[in-house]
Design a protein around this nucleic acid. Structure first.
Lengths: 153, 153
DNA sequence: CTGGACCTTCCCACCGTTGGAAGGTCAAGC
DNA sequence: GCTTGACCTTCCAACGGTGGGAAGGTCCAG
């Protein structure tokens, strides 16, 4: 089948399938004489595997590892579990960061009257009148800076 | 003061201060004859405002709006609150997505023996033996695809 | 006048995904 | 046959936010 059908069946866009091939997450697909990529049902299964792993938030690199464990019939499940556990901790960290942002902001929003007048604890806090934001959000900030970068989209 | 000191005082790297100027989040800094950027205490206050807003997860665009509300002495706090409330919902969505990923993965990890043998419910689920991942993570996936992109780092 | 700390601009990388341009291929209908 | 439209190809650029580094200029203390 062509890439379009593989995309439909796997839930991964054709763009991304090509990209995954480019970053060697997938081995290069077979080609027709005219250069069209050809996929088998097995290929589609691998693509679905990738999609499900991405749905769980695994990075491309992690998925590479998961795929090779999957292919290895003699893997010890210990290794899979370890990989997943590491990712779980990553998710947990992000979750905590987001949570502290959320509660800090929730607190601010709650304290703001939201009327015609200009006085607003949200702006006041951002402007630093008083103690540096909230201790919770600051902790998240530190983590963020240590990690390099951050949540998008 | 030079950009380095402004960076130290504000907690924003010199790199990012230049970047923020580039994307017009900040008005261009004064320059010395030799071209060095010069910052006042007021500039530093704006930088700190930005840092705190980023700590709460606001995007650059949102911060642009927050800054102009901050500068506007006649703003109705209603507008600030509305902006913050929108961001709060964004945080909440992300939080829910992460949470569903986490619980799905937690479930899988919990079900994996983590021993020398190859059988592993984590891989089995990713491979699609049974029902499509978990309904929770699927919901997250759908949202993600709708949104465009996703959590990094 | 030398050295080192600082500054400047510029371009490149990361991550995952999307968009578009410019062109080739394939199958159906006339 | 030829046209049309859906599909495919490659390549390049963008998003968000941040960091890294090169190549060069400046400033001050010793």
């Amino acid at each position: 089948m062509n890439i379009g059908e593989a995309a439909r069946l796997s839930g991964i866009s054709a763009k991304m399938i090509r990209h995954y091939e480019g970053v060697q997450l997938l081995s290069p697909a077979q080609r027709t004489d005219s250069g069209y990529r050809q996929y088998t049902e097995n290929d589609v299964r691998a693509l679905q595997f990738i999609r499900r792993a991405r749905d769980l938030g695994f990075s491309i690199d992690e998925i590479r590892d998961l795929l090779s464990l999957w292919q290895d019939r003699n893997r010890p499940s210990r290794e899979v579990k370890a990989l997943a556990a590491v990712h779980l901790e990553t998710l947990d960290k992000r979750l905590k960061e987001l949570h502290s942002m959320k509660s800090a902001l929730e607190h601010l929003v709650h304290g703001c009257q939201g009327n015609d007048r200009p006085d607003c604890p949200i702006l006041e806090t951002l402007a630093g009148s008083g103690d540096e934001a909230t201790s919770e959000a600051n902790a998240a900030s530190l983590k963020r800076h240590r990690r390099g970068h951050q949540i998008t989209g």
